[in-house]
Design a protein around this nucleic acid. Structure first.
Lengths: 195, 195
DNA sequence: TAATCTTACGACACACAATGCCATCAAGGT
DNA sequence: ACCTTGATGGCATTGTGTGTCGTAAGATTA
């Protein structure tokens, strides 16, 4: 018989989600979370670096996965296809527990602190795409801009998938997010002078 | 003779920049800033909502300007040209004090807290582009993705402009950032099935 | 000129986040 | 039986951010 219940992290996360649902993210203190979980405030910080991270734990793994996935596509596959397939796979995987993710996203949207943190996670996601593309042979400059843009495309498609009532394949959401960017595809160096 | 020096905000900003340069952003406390500025800790929060905002004050005005600029382009001008010209003008304006901006960017890059805050500002920038495009007649969905992507294009061009030794027209930096996106322009709905 | 309002600040208190350090005590190995 | 390990509690400390109130100089009005 262990001295303590062995599922401390799970209990903390569960207590946090309950309280966030009851009273919103901002007004819940860490002391309240640990009280409900039967731990002390100090222990909270042994599992999560701060309050926001309760909602993002596990997301550290994503970047490495994305980078590998992308880098391992054979060189014959066009970069755009490699990106598209990678984003599809990640999206479909995350959307497996659509309800939980929708609730989580709703919570994030309700707090400016959480929106800030989510952007940090998206930046790491973008960097992983950049690194993957670089390993595939893209130049550093190309990979840089393609990474951040691909990440925004993913996010745009993902939030739409969570918001819309009817479930359609994530690939179609990506198509919808990509379509307006044809605008930049036909972009030619401008000769327009300002003023 | 006024009871207090009338330039409290300037003094705070100056003291903060000095200290950040001396010892880095994270290790400087607000008490140290206010000591050097000859004020109390409480007064700091009357001018800035938090420590990070010292480096971003003034940036609240940008979104409204961008939205108006974009919305006021005549409807005959293609959306891509309106975006390009707007980003050019903003970039050239900001690059007027290139040295100060380069130092500021270097500071931001050195602190995760500051990078988070900068992403928030970029998000507001993206939203203003979205709003401007929406007022020009783009659909909400189009404007959404075009806004975030345009903002990333701007940022990509802007940091390159600050980093590179030789000063070239900002329009050329935008061209360089845009070029890799031709990849998405030729994108066709994929028929590839996963797995 | 005198009374009153306003404004920019100081002074104080407080809740909370985050971190370091040490004590404790069960479990498991030697 | 002893030692080690690991998860936790307990305590102290620093720093952020906010609410509240007092104060005195300058501006306004009578």
């Amino acid at each position: 018989m262990p001295r303590w219940s062995p599922d401390a992290e799970l209990r903390l996360r569960a207590a946090a989600f309950e309280l966030f649902e009851e009273r919103g993210f901002d007004s819940v203190t860490i002391a309240e979370i640990t009280d409900r979980a039967g731990l002390t405030r100090r222990s909270f910080f042994r599992y999560f670096p701060d309050k926001r991270e309760v909602l993002f734990s596990g997301s550290e793994k994503l970047p490495a996965i994305v980078e590998e996935m992308l880098a391992n596509f054979p060189a014959e596959i066009a970069a755009r296809d490699a990106i598209f397939r990678t984003l599809s796979e990640i999206g479909n995987f995350l959307l497996q527990d659509r309800n939980a993710q929708a609730f989580r996203q709703q919570l994030i949207d309700s707090s400016s602190e959480l929106r800030e943190r989510e952007r940090t996670k998206m930046a790491a996601f973008a960097t992983s795409i950049t690194n993957g593309l670089f390993r595939r042979g893209n130049s550093s400059e190309e990979a840089q801009i393609l990474g951040v843009v691909a990440a925004e495309i993913f996010r745009n498609a993902y939030v739409r998938a969570l918001r819309e009532a009817d479930v359609i394949p994530f690939e179609r959401q990506l198509d919808a997010s990509l379509a307006p960017l044809a605008l930049f595809g036909s972009f030619e160096k401008t000769e327009i002078e300002l003023r």
